[in-house]
């Protein structure tokens, strides 16, 4: 007996065609969802950076506290996104605020870990030289530590951004909006084309966000040190 998966050109063309017409038909709605999705993701990312950056700088100079904070952060990473949403639901209800909080919790660990690693990894000799040249603590932070920690920080942002854009899909479950709405209703009504459109748009967003960060990383001339 011969098994054969039937993939006729008409079937493929059919799905793509359906997806395309779905997209065209719902373009206003999709645009609005994309916008909400981006706002949620980047709002969460910005909040996470604002919270994690100073915290990361602070813990980077304190070994014991740093170990505890990084432990907590990696524990947070284990909790699935959906779990976070479920936990937040009774506290914050539905809508944008709990979605944002959940996404911030997702984005925090990679940023925190990398800010800490970035500042901790600054070459001691460079710090020593800076102090010897009469830099104040603030000048040291601004002109030496921060630029040298920047590449590592950006790597953390890159990790966080993909995670947050992908997970923002789940916000739709608790009324936070975004492209998740298209995907969820697509699943409910079993509309393959609709699912495809939603999934592709999320993937496209995640990829472009990552590409953006990669471009920023590449533009840093000192990003990769040759060890001589």
């Amino acid at each position: 007996m011969r098994w054969r998966v039937r993939r006729t050109p008409t079937a493929n063309g059919g799905l793509l065609q359906q997806a395309l017409s779905y997209a065209l038909l719902h373009r206003a709605e999709l645009l609005a969802q994309t916008r909400t999705h981006v706002e949620l993701a980047f709002g969460a990312l910005a909040l996470a950076i604002v919270l994690a950056y100073p915290l990361g700088v602070w813990i980077s100079g304190r070994r014991r506290i740093s170990a505890a904070a990084l432990g907590t952060a990696s524990a947070l990473r284990v909790v699935p996104s959906l779990g976070i949403l479920a936990l937040l639901l009774p506290v914050l209800g539905v809508g944008t605020p709990p979605s944002l909080v959940a996404l911030v919790i997702l984005a925090l660990p990679p940023i925190l870990v990398n800010v800490d690693a970035g500042y901790r990894g600054v070459e001691p000799a460079a710090l020593d030289a800076a102090a010897a040249m009469g830099m104040t603590r603030w000048q040291l932070f601004l002109y030496v530590q921060t630029p040298l920690a920047l590449p590592v920080f950006l790597t953390g942002v890159r990790g966080a951004v993909v995670e947050v854009v992908a997970s923002a899909t789940l916000a739709a479950f608790i009324g936070g909006g975004g492209l998740g709405e298209t995907i969820i209703t697509g699943m409910q009504v079993d509309n393959q084309a609709q699912l495809l459109v939603g999934g592709l748009l999320v993937a496209l967003l995640a990829l472009s966000a990552e590409l953006l960060i990669v471009l920023i990383e590449r533009s840093i001339p000192w990003r990769r040190m040759r060890h001589s």
Binding site: A125, A126, A129, M133, G134, L148, P221
Partner: peptide, 29 residues
């Protein structure tokens, strides 16, 4: 701080700033 700015110090580990060019390194003080 003022004292250090008028004393040149070549540290044992060289300790150039990896994120600055040669000219920028020399120009720090």
């Amino acid at each position: 701080i003022a004292l250090r700015r008028r004393i040149g110090y070549v540290i044992q580990a060289v300790g150039l700033f990896p994120h600055l060019t040669v000219a920028q390194n020399v120009a720090v003080v």
